[in-house]
Design a protein around this nucleic acid. Sequence first.
DNA 1: GCAACTAAACCGTCCGGTCGGTATATAAAT
DNA 2: ATTTATATACCGACCGGACGGTTTAGTTGC
Lengths: 188, 188
Amino acid sequence: MLENARGRKSSREKILDAAAELVSEIGAGRLTLDAVAERAGLSKGGLLYNFPSKEALLQAMIRRMIDQVTESREALRPQLKPGPNLEARLATTTLLNMCCDGKMQEIATGLMVATAENPRLLDPVREVISETLQRIKSDSDDDAALLGWLAVEGLSNLEMHNLSPFSDQDRERIVQAINRLLTKGIAS
Amino acid sequence: MLENARGRKSSREKILDAAAELVSEIGAGRLTLDAVAERAGLSKGGLLYNFPSKEALLQAMIRRMIDQVTESREALRPQLKPGPNLEARLATTTLLNMCCDGKMQEIATGLMVATAENPRLLDPVREVISETLQRIKSDSDDDAALLGWLAVEGLSNLEMHNLSPFSDQDRERIVQAINRLLTKGIAS
DNA sequence: GCAACTAAACCGTCCGGTCGGTATATAAAT
DNA sequence: ATTTATATACCGACCGGACGGTTTAGTTGC
């Protein structure tokens, strides 16, 4: 559904791409409709034709970002071997993979805009997180799964805001440690 | 230094308090000088007398928030018994305690404003985080310390944005699990 | 007499949103 | 076949309000 019949990206997609790019370049508080329109290659009128208000645009950004995470997770599912903490491993691996693509940037920017403009825009995110917690709880035996998930949340949050102090080696070690935690648990 | 000679809060403090309150009420993107002045109980002129620009106000918010975290940590230091992962235990406990006070809100709001208005405002935060990592590394034997710290980062980030899906019992269990992780490590 | 304001008008810019108009395509009416 | 109508997708000038910041003239308390 990302492309219309002619194989060209729809205006909606171009606009969402442009908005995500812009936020990561100039910051969430400086996102303007004019800038988005220019970047997307259409007029402000055209932009507002596709999204009747700035709020509608932001909602769409959040929605797309959520859908992408869900898609990635489900695409990953068949590649992981079943076992304990499967849902936690899925959730963490998905997030960690997205940090490496540019996609994480988009998640970050969406969240930043939402936080800046209108905290209510985060409602759908709240829902997804709550659902993820349920999934993780549903097939985890101890608290290691929760800790691993939280650690990934922490790491990705740092990376979102360009606050991560970790070198590549650091990060690699951390990822492995999280995997160990999810498969072996906390020492007793 | 929070109060002036007469025991009354200085205008600067009142202004910073007002700004933090406002952000958590109306969102980072809607913070205006007029609103801050009104909430702080002085005129716009008075506000701009204390902070010559909005940017200066935001910088001061970030600075105060960093100082509060550092102070809290050092106040906690004599109360923890020495041992492995002391720095990690300090860092995590400090953050977790602040989540319970209202103080966490202030940290959150500061970060939100900074992210929204001007990513450069996060520079001092980046520095503090980097320094914290060094501290944690300096006295930890394995990766458990890093994981515990990251988990707390994740938890507090969720709580900052009111995204935490955890009940009080959940949270309690998680805190205990983090402590176990920091004292006993990952199973081998 | 200086620091720390108050009060209120004002300026310039930015920005979300409106609105009249346009181009193209497809369909309906004659 | 030609006109007329309708829908879609878009353009871009413009409006009005918000907001950061300035200025000015005065006030209060040490």
